Simulated scan of single mutants.
Amino acid sequence: MRIDIEDLHVDYAGRTVVAGAHLVAAEGEITGLVGPNGSGKSTLLRTVYRHLRPSAGRVLLDGADLRALSPTESARHVAALPQERGGDFELTVREVVAMGRTPYKRAFAGEDDADRDIVARALADVGMDRHSGRRFTALSGGERQRVLLARAFAQDPDVLVLDEPTNHLDIRHQVELLALLRARRRTTLVSLHDLNAAASVCDRLHVLHAGTVVASGPPREVLTPALVAEVFGVRATVVDHPLTGDPLIAFDHQGPAGTGTAGDT
Rank of each mutant, 00 (worst) to 15 (best):
N167Q: 12
E164C: 02
L178M: 15
H168K: 08
L181G: 02
E164Q: 03
R151S: 10
R151N: 08
V159Y: 11
H173I: 01
I171G: 03
P157T: 04
Q174M: 00
V159C: 13
E176N: 05
A150C: 03
L160E: 10
A152E: 11
A150Q: 13
H173D: 03
A152P: 03
T166C: 08
R184G: 05
P165I: 03
A179T: 14
N167M: 08
R151D: 11
D163I: 02
D158L: 10
P157V: 04
Q155K: 13
D170C: 01
R184E: 13
A154Y: 09
L160I: 07
E164G: 01
T166M: 09
L169T: 09
L169F: 06
I171D: 03
A183M: 04
R184K: 14
N167C: 02
R151H: 10
L160T: 10
R185E: 13
L180A: 01
L180R: 04
E176M: 01
D170F: 00
T166P: 04
Q155E: 11
L162E: 07
D170Q: 06
A152D: 11
H173R: 10
A183Q: 13
E176C: 00
V161T: 13
I171C: 04
A179H: 13
D163A: 01
P165R: 04
R184S: 04
N167W: 07
R184Q: 14
E164I: 00
A183E: 15
D163E: 09
D170R: 11
Q174R: 08
V161Y: 12
E164S: 04
R184V: 05
A179K: 11
E164N: 05
A154Q: 08
P157K: 06
D158T: 04
A152W: 12
E164F: 10
R182F: 04
D158K: 14
A179C: 00
I171V: 15
N167E: 10
P157H: 05
D158F: 00
V175D: 13
D163Y: 08
A154V: 02
L177P: 04
R182E: 14
V161C: 04
T166N: 10
A179S: 15
R172P: 05
L162P: 03
R182T: 13
R172W: 13
V175S: 10
E164L: 03
D170E: 03
F153V: 00
R151F: 10
H173Y: 15
Q174I: 00
V161H: 09
L160Y: 12
V175L: 15
R182H: 13
R182G: 10
L162R: 08
V159S: 12
E164V: 05
I171F: 15
D163L: 02
L180T: 01
L169G: 08
P157Q: 13
L162S: 03
F153R: 07
N167A: 15
A154M: 02
L160C: 10
D158C: 00
A179I: 01
D163T: 03
V161M: 12
Q155I: 06
L181W: 03
L180D: 11
L178W: 14
E176P: 00
V159E: 14
Q174V: 01
